[in-house]
Design a protein around this nucleic acid. Sequence first.
RNA 1: GCCUCGGUAGCUCAAUGGUAGAGCGGCGGGCUGUUAACCCGUAGGCUGCAGGUUCGAGUCCUGCCCGAGGCGCCA
Length: 431
Amino acid sequence: MKFVYIENLRNFVNEEVELRGWLYNKRESGSVKFIILRDGTGFVQCILSKTDVPVEIFERNIPYESSIVVRGIVREDKRAPGGYEVLVKDIKVITESENYPIPKVREDNIPDVDVLMPMRHLWIRSKKQWAILRIRSEVEQAIHDFFYNRGFIRTDAPILTPASVEGTTTLFEIDYFGKPAYLSQSGQLYVEATMMSFSKVYCFGPTFRAEKSKTRKHLSEFWMVEPEVAYAELEDVMDLAEELVEYIVERVLERKMEELKILERDIKELESVKKPFYRITYEQAIEKLMKKGFNIKYGDDFGADEEKGIVEEYDKPVSIMFYPKEIKPFYMKIDYIDKTKVRNFDMLVPYVGEIIGGSQREEDIETLISRIREENLPMELYIWYLETRKYGGVPHSGFGLGVERTVLWITKAQHIRETIPFPRLLEKIYP
RNA sequence: GCCUCGGUAGCUCAAUGGUAGAGCGGCGGGCUGUUAACCCGUAGGCUGCAGGUUCGAGUCCUGCCCGAGGCGCCA
């Protein structure tokens, strides 16, 4: 008896196999019963015919989400969802799960999030969540492959940190052997240091923001990939960012088509995500918005409506470059020509807004010191950072890409909480 | 922090101030190819909490609690 996964069933047509999984759904019609089995790799219809299985197996009523082991013969059949099905010979129930709390229901009867969220540990078994999280896995793997293939070294940054990276945002404070410490809001300062050892680096890990944000695209804990490249100027990492995004989408289209179909995602929109993307300046963005009737002036940052107003002008991701230095953090490099601007970019996509923020970094130690003073940051905590400039500082650039926002964009999930297995949201930390 | 909407059966929702209902799910029965199956039957309720108005409140009023959506902050 061969134990196989559903994703490989096509290779075992007319053979007897064993499947191990959970009862996802069922229907019955007199002497024929249909069971939808899921095993993590896919879903398959299993047929119980009264004449083919022992009567005690046929008559046993197995509740939803019971764990079961099914033996049967693989058949190709057009009537089966997915084209393959299993004629059951035997079913073994491992654990019977009575009264599964999430109803198997119709679309007009899907429980509200306040019902589903406390059951996130069970909700992730449902088909859409399964599809979204499989795509998340593919996105993460694509990121690693992309950088690995380009010779980047993965150097992860610490999660416990003595100070804020940017100084302004609210951090989660913890007790570190009697002294205050903070959960990292970005690994950037640390990859700037490891870059001086390895030239091309990235970190990949969780980041934490204690802001009281309550929107479709904010989490208190989210994952970010942050590459940093020595001797790279702004335009170099913009190329890198666009190639990364193009690659991620390509990989999902190549390997996760079934999941995109479950989510009813418009494939054409994703297929058009090919370089070159669009690049505009901050000033061009302001002008465009003013022409469209937005109440905005030079020097303002873009809110949710403004981001949407810009993104809807384009059929691909668009990057906005050269923001006024006042609305950006201290480490960004002042532009060569216009000293009021920084050499940065934000990449925006439809439905989500910003998925990438990046910049060329300030390498001049004196400029950095005065910027740190201007921002009233604790200089003593940045000594090590300044030393990366003191000893062989070079021009360099990097960016951060938000994993969940990228998954949100690709899957068009209803809310960012569906793009991570166990989301941490404003004041919500269960389960 | 601000604005808006909501809370009635396990879930999704109805119910002019006048006997609390339906669909789905559960349970029982029927159907030999179902596709979010279908048909028959059945159980299931402190209408978020506390006051008030009224002959009578799910419905009107006041306060509170909880939730959702959006904005802001931010990535």
